[in-house]
Design a protein around this nucleic acid. Sequence first.
DNA 1: CAGTACACGTTATCATTTTCACAAAAGGTT
DNA 2: AACCTTTTGTGAAAATGATAACGTGTACTG
Lengths: 230, 230
Amino acid sequence: MKSEHIPRATIQRLAMYVQVLEDLTRDGTQVVSSELLAKACSVNPSQIRKDLAYFGEFGVRGVGYYVQELNASIKRALGVDRIWNCAIVGVGNLGRALLNHTEFKKRGFYIVGAYDCDPFKIGEDISGLEVMCTKRLKDKVNELGIVIAIITTPPERAQRAANHIIDAGIKAIMNFAPARIDVPSDVCLEYVDFFHHFYALAFNTTLTQRYPESGSGKTSSKPKPDSSLK
Amino acid sequence: MKSEHIPRATIQRLAMYVQVLEDLTRDGTQVVSSELLAKACSVNPSQIRKDLAYFGEFGVRGVGYYVQELNASIKRALGVDRIWNCAIVGVGNLGRALLNHTEFKKRGFYIVGAYDCDPFKIGEDISGLEVMCTKRLKDKVNELGIVIAIITTPPERAQRAANHIIDAGIKAIMNFAPARIDVPSDVCLEYVDFFHHFYALAFNTTLTQRYPESGSGKTSSKPKPDSSLK
DNA sequence: CAGTACACGTTATCATTTTCACAAAAGGTT
DNA sequence: AACCTTTTGTGAAAATGATAACGTGTACTG
C-alpha cells in the first residue's frame, strides 16, 4: 500500500504508463482497465495494479482507472508534477541537440543554463541561452534554481564535469557521456547510453536469427501477452 | 555454462562491461579481476562471473581476465563484433543529431540511409546522406544492406513509420519516438526514451530529499559497494 | 618442485520480483 | 432492494535474479 522499497523496474514502468496514459488522453479515452493498459505496455495486468499499490489506491473497482486522474497521480508519485531546472554541461553535438529538443519543456524539465570549458564556445548563443564557462556553474546554481545537471561532454571529461557539478552543490546528475563516474552517495546519478540499447537490439536480433522459434528471441524479458492489440 | 535463458539485465551489464573494458584498454591495463571490474561498474563480483558464465569461460584462475580478450569475447557474445547497417526514419531534430553523431560508426552501427515523409526534407543532404521518401525504404533495403531501422519521428507518426519498416522486411527496430508501437513477433524492438531516465532521476532525488538517510535514496536498485574507488 | 595465495567457475542459498487467485467494492439491472 | 457483473487491491505462490560459499586450476615463491 504505501512506500517501503520500490523496485527500480516499477519506476521505469510507471514512466511507461504515463506515456500510454497521455496517448489515451489525446484519444479522448476516459477510463482504462489494468487489462487494457497492460496490453498496451506488454506487461501483466497484476503488475500494473501492484506497481500502483506502492503509492496508493487510484482505481475504482468494477470500473477501472480514470485516465487523466491516474496520469496525474503517477506523475505526482514520481515527482514530475513540478518544474525541474536543468543545466547542460558540454555543448557538443549531443548537448546542442538536447538544447534544441522541444520535448524537455513539455515534460517539465527546463534547460536554463549551458556550460562548456572550451573558450571558443563560451559566449555563443544556442536557442536563446548563452554558453558559459563551467567554472561559473557554481555562481549560477542559486540564481537560476538549477537542480539537475546534464553531462554531455566527451567521456574523458565527464568526471571533471561531475566534479564541478558536485562542487556547485547540485544533487542530481544525468550522465549522457559514455563513461562511468564517481559521485558522493548523496548525489543521485543516472546514466543514459543508447548504445546499450543498440547492443541489446543486436543481441536479440542475432538470437532470433539463430533460433527463430520463440517469438522475437527475447532473452527472458518482457512477456508476449497476446500480441494482438486492436 | 552455455546459453539457456539470459536475463535482460545481464545484457545491459555486458554492455557496461564493454564500456569499462575499453576505458581500461585505453589506460593500457592488461589484466583485470572480477573484483576490480565490479567496483568500476558498481556491481557484485559474483554477478560479473555469473554473467560471463552464460557465454563461456573467459578468465584465468588466479589471474583474472585479459582486458582486450574479454572485451572481444563479450562483443562477440553480444553480436557487436560486426557492422550493422542502419536507416533513420524521421529527420527532425533528433534524427539529424543522430546522423551527425560520430559515435555510431565507432561502435559498428553505420547509418546508411535517411528517410522522411515530408516533401520539403526529401532531397536534402545531411552529412553526405540524401534524405529519401520513406516509401522508398523498401527498395533500398537490399541495395544498402539495411538491417536496423531507427525511428525518430514524432510520436503520432511512429506506428506508420514502423509499418513501412516492417513492410520493407527489416527485423530490428530502435524506437526513439515517445510512443508504444506494435510489431509482429519476429521483429525485434527496443525503446529509447531518455525521459524515463529523467523521471527516475526526479523520483530518486525527491526521495533522497525527503528521506536523506540511506545513501542516494536508491529505490532498491544497484548496491552501494564500498563507494570508494581509487 | 612442493607449497601457497589468488581469482575464476559453479553450485547452493537467499532475496526480490512477478504472477496467480480471490475477496471486496462499485455500478448497473431487474 | 437484492443480485449479478466487473475490476480493483492484496496476500500467497511461483519464478526469477542476485549473493555468498566453495572447490579448482593457475602462477608464483622459496
